[in-house]
């Protein structure tokens, strides 16, 4: 209970579809059982098609997201190009490992589409940067057990964007409803090669 990863609560999930990826998070911010805010998004955009989801200690979520904002801005200025999701994932990994013995208490998730090949890409990390490449889905946060169950039960290969949206939404909503530390609405991003759709889900407000 006093683990830094479960003080504030929160959940995030990314899924691969056919020529598309989806990433979604809940909106709750809490202090143990006390809900402080119901508008704390955990997904951040770093290029037209590269997204990062961060769950864990809220102060680290904010700090790390801003750290990557700085790093990616510097990358874009130096290289005059947007960072590719795969490259961004490596940047996340090396940045987390830099703090090997005093880690950021976050469980990041990267989702995006490669600008060159159009290939969908998702991956997750532990708090010190070990990358988990997955062909299907990545979950993180205090509802990760529940998300594993719903994703494993609902996900199927080659979902079209609309079906992927329905799948990831149901997976997240039903998972956070069984986790007291997550919920209070959700953000869902559907990422296609040259289109990103963001939707707000109301969800249970308890």
């Amino acid at each position: 209970m006093s683990s830094p990863f479960s003080i504030n609560g929160g959940a995030c999930v990314a899924m691969r579809g056919k020529n598309c990826v989806a990433i979604a998070c809940d909106l709750r911010l809490g202090l143990q059982s006390l809900t402080v805010s119901n508008n704390f998004p955990k997904i951040f955009q770093y290029s037209p098609t590269a997204f990062l989801g961060l769950t864990g200690l809220a102060t680290d979520v904010s700090t790390v997201s801003e750290l990557f904002r700085y790093k990616v801005n510097m990358y874009r200025l130096r290289e005059e190009r947007d960072i590719a999701p795969k490259t961004f994932a490596q940047l996340v990994s090396s940045s987390l490992y830099e703090r090997r013995f005093g880690p950021w208490f976050v469980s990041p998730v990267v989702a995006g589409i490669d600008g060159k090949s159009g290939a969908p890409f998702i991956c997750g990390f532990d708090s010190i940067g070990c990358i988990d490449y997955a062909a299907d889905f990545i979950v993180s946060g205090t509802a990760s057990d529940q998300l594993f169950g719903t994703c494993e039960g609902l996900w199927e290969p080659d979902l079209e964007p609309d079906d992927l949206f329905e799948t990831i939404s149901q997976a997240l909503l039903n998972a956070v409803d069984r986790d007291a530390l997550s919920g209070w609405g959700a953000h869902v991003y559907i990422i296609e090669k040259d289109k990103v759709t963001k939707r707000l889900l109301k969800g249970r407000q308890d």
Binding site: R78, E79, T87, Q90, L91, S93, S94
Partner: peptide, 15 residues
């Protein structure tokens, strides 16, 4: 390479 796990583009190395 230790940051991005890929080699620098030519211009970056030149810089």
């Amino acid at each position: 390479k230790r940051i991005y796990n890929e080699y620098p583009p030519t211009r970056i190395l030149v810089q």
